[in-house]
Design a protein around this nucleic acid. Structure first.
Length: 350
DNA sequence: GTCCTCGGCATTTCCTTTGC
DNA sequence: GCAAAGGAAATGCCGAGGAC
């Protein structure tokens, strides 16, 4: 951890942009860095979900040549809107499900990376400490590797069906709410394919957790990149992956709400994080086999083989845990003895 | 002064309902 | 079929405050 080193050394290390619109920040040329820093996405040109779905449906129907005049006009209109969307935005190379999918993350920073200050600017730290910290959940969608991986491990099917946003908790009637409203959703469900009709459905829930950052807004970094004409310089501001916000605050409540129900149903929860995220948590006692677990942690690395290559997502390791051990790990510490805690209270009273 | 945690507001995304 | 409006949940981000 950065803090566990001398202060002068700490000041020479900062987190900066790891990947920007899918490309390695350290390896891109100055002109590209400058162009990205100047880029402003045209949010107004983006298609709505219903428009996107309608376009896809009409394209399929149109390929068989049986569109009505009204449908053909609508298709032409949506194609123009799609072209405008692509022209006014950057593409995301990781959203594998949609062709020409655009990046919708403000600023387009996919991941952070640690840099060391040098006389001439900065160099990225290599090795484990220099690994990418994914900021955007779509970073994990690269070529849908994680879905193939999780499907194979949990369902014995490397090409499972994918379903998003499925409501699984309904509210009770209350003064301010109506009974039956969805109050909780599972982000993604992997469904085993190819089962005979009437055969019990086999599926697993999947959560992806990227890390948020804490520190100055990225806009200040973009401003500095413009000021330096795109050269690779040491990050202007201090930022760090905010594992406390991402783990105990975001991921832990999700697991506490969803896993008990999944456990009653005899289903597993897959959680996909990068290795740095997992290592930032407290130690989790693993169980030896999927059958004894509630949660399967799918840990990924981001590697590149040579300078200039894009980083590739690599399936690194699967760790099986119970919910209880996962909560202990996410909490990230062991309680102090009661006597020590009461001593601390006494010190604050004095 | 710097770093880290965490509370909470803002924004995004999605779903449902309604009316044309 | 489509768009607009409204609401809910999830996510993203900022900044205050405490520790060092």
């Amino acid at each position: 951890m950065v803090l566990n080193m001398p202060k002068d050394k700490r000041n020479a290390l900062r987190f900066g942009i790891g990947e920007w619109y899918g490309k390695s920040f350290a390896d891109m040329d100055d002109a590209t860095r400058l162009a990205y820093a100047n880029f402003k996405a045209d949010k107004g040109a983006r298609l709505k979900k219903t428009e996107r779905e309608r376009l896809a449906a009409l394209e399929i129907k149109g390929s068989s040549g049986i569109l009505t005049a009204k449908e053909a006009a609508r298709l032409a209109e949506l194609r123009v809107k799609k072209a405008n969307e692509v022209a006014g935005n950057k593409l995301c190379p990781f959203k594998g499900l949609n062709k020409d999918a655009i990046c919708t993350k403000e600023g387009g920073v996919c991941s952070l990376r640690l840099y060391e200050k040098t006389d001439n600017g900065a160099v990225p730290i290599e090795g484990e400490r220099g690994s990418l910290r994914a900021l955007c959940p779509y970073r994990f969608h690269e070529q849908q590797k994680i879905f193939h991986w999780a499907g194979r491990v949990l369902l014995g099917d490397k090409n499972p069906g994918l379903v998003g946003e499925v409501g699984f908790l309904e509210s009770s009637e209350s003064v301010d709410g109506v009974e039956g409203d969805d109050v909780g959703r599972i982000d993604m469900v992997l469904v085993k394919s190819g089962l005979p009709d009437g055969y019990p459905m086999q599926w697993a829930a999947l959560e992806i957790q990227a890390v948020y950052f804490s520190g100055s807004e990225m806009g200040k970094e973009f401003k500095e990149i413009r000021r330096q004409n795109g050269t690779l310089t040491f990050p202007k501001e201090v930022r760090r992956p905010d594992y406390r916000s991402s783990g105990p605050k975001r991921l832990m409540p999700q697991l506490q709400i969803k896993v008990p129900t999944l456990r009653r149903w005899g289903k597993k929860m897959a959680v996909v994080v990068d290795r740095s995220f997992f290592n930032s948590m407290g130690r989790m006692e693993a169980v030896g086999d999927l059958s004894n677990s509630d949660i399967a942690w799918f840990l990924v690395d981001f590697e590149k083989t040579s300078k200039g290559d894009a980083f590739k997502l690599v399936a690194a390791e699967v760790v099986f845990t119970t919910l209880e051990r996962a909560i202990e790990g996410l909490t990230g510490g062991s309680p102090v003895p009661l006597s020590e805690f009461e001593q601390r209270i006494a010190e604050k009273l004095n």
